[in-house]
Design a protein around this nucleic acid. Structure first.
Lengths: 262, 262
DNA sequence: CGTACTATTTCGGTATACCTAAAATTTATA
DNA sequence: TATAAATTTTAGGTATACCGAAATAGTACG
């Protein structure tokens, strides 16, 4: 089965299905999809049937939903749109970090391919957006930085913030107020038992992992406690490896394995 | 009756109703509306009923359709969006004159008020778009240049191109190829009987109406014949008066009289 | 001044994308 | 392993915005 009519709802469904597996690989369920889209479960069931008819997803009743190669291609095109738009809004129209998401959400369905490519050119073909998310190229190739979510790291680990989830503008403002942004260097000091908080220390941006001499400032105003939401929203690149890459090939028949390579 | 749900269809209807009376004052009929929107007459009848319920138009069955003050306010907001977007696409994203219309048509329904105002600021709050159409300000005030359509002018009239209808990208490219653009100075030489064509002469841009000495170059390569479509798509400002203004007040209870002031 | 013609509206119908409630299936637990 | 609980699907229904065909109102002219 195949058809062309790609509505903006279809674009949203496919994008959410993709996003779910971008940083972990369990496929999404109907209920999770419904929650993320803000629609009823029954709406998802119907829509998934339609997506299946158009060969955008694989789905057996009562099982999770996976993108086909075509679905992945469409999803990556939408993700490209979204992330380029966010980057553009921040760089060219003085939008702040926390304002761009909703605007991009609407624009991504309205702009032409021409618009997207002109915008990408104007920006110098950026490869990551203001939150650190990688931007697929026009062919749908995406390079995932080998980052780790803060809750996976133990005391002593050092790294640079590579990605900050953009779903909560509140949190973005909070982080910014505490001096945390993309590329900020951090060291994990320790985990507070339960409650999900983590103690970290900001490292001077001059600090380089190739000079592992610890610039331990004795008593430091750079210590911070991060709450659970923050811990789950921050990803670090832990190597000196600044952009170690994995190229995804969406045109291949097989699905990508989007998990980072270590 | 009043309600808030302003869909993108409603926005289109209201915008087309407004546009029809922007340069002449006969109100639009159902059939004309249907033709311009590319929908069936029956669709217009239904939709006009809805617009009336929302107090956006005045309409008696079998009569033409007029905007109410609320409708005019919405229309001017949409026109502002459209024209700012066109200006932005040309100035910031290297779109050409003839490409912008369709793109703006989609974007105008998707962008936020914030986006519009940031864009306007970035552009230095322009007052006319790339085709010469006036851009209403954020309060819905619009300044109509006192221009005349080329078909209303007689031999000997001179002026500057103030507006070029943007509905036919073909025509825009044709005019550009013949060196005609916004602010090009012209003199009407004569009318060819029937067939609608008009002979004009390009004047050097240095030519000023305050020095009415005719710089009559004897045999001129600057003569052009304009076909009917071109004649109906070009407006000239004929005075030295470069931006003589009329301010429309859409919040007033009465409808504006959008015809230029002579 | 009535009839033919045109413009406009009304009347069923369609497609998309939702919803709630009920039925079916899977999973978890006692 | 049977039954309760949770998940997922189906069934029936809503709103928007279209359509074509039929009915109705207005206009034009012989």
């Amino acid at each position: 089965m195949k058809a062309t009519p790609t509505s903006s709802s279809i674009e949203d469904y496919v994008k959410v299905i993709y996003s779910f597996t971008e940083w972990q690989d369990k496929p999404i369920t109907s209920t999770q999809l419904a929650a993320r889209l803000g629609v009823a479960n029954s709406s998802v069931s119907e829509m998934v049937r339609k997506l299946k008819d158009q060969d955008l997803v694989d789905h057996e009743p009562y099982s999770p939903i996976r993108l086909t190669a075509d679905g992945l291609k469409l999803a990556l095109a939408m993700v490209r749109r979204h992330r380029l738009l966010e980057t553009y809004l921040v760089r060219e129209l003085d939008f702040s970090w926390d304002e761009v998401h909703d605007e991009a959400e609407h624009l991504e369905h309205a702009v032409s391919e021409t618009f997207i490519e002109r915008m990408s050119a104007k920006l110098g073909h950026p490869t990551r957006d203001p939150h650190g998310d990688p931007i697929p190229d026009a062919q749908g190739h995406i390079v995932m930085p080998p980052s780790h979510r803060l809750d996976e790291l133990d005391a002593g680990h050092r790294g640079q913030i590579a990605r900050i989830s953009d779903h909560d503008p509140e949190l973005l403002r909070h982080l910014q107020a505490n001096g945390l942004g993309l590329d900020t260097k951090l060291e994990v000091i320790g985990r507070r038992p339960f409650g999900g908080t983590l103690e970290v220390r900001k490292l001077p941006s001059s600090f380089s992992p190739s000079s592992p001499a610890v610039p331990s400032s004795p008593d430091d105003a750079d210590r911070l406690d991060l709450g659970e939401e923050a811990v789950l929203s921050l990803w670090l690149v832990t190597q000196g490896t600044h952009l170690d890459c994995t190229v995804q090939e969406p045109t291949a028949g097989s699905l990508m394995s989007p998990r980072n390579g270590r």
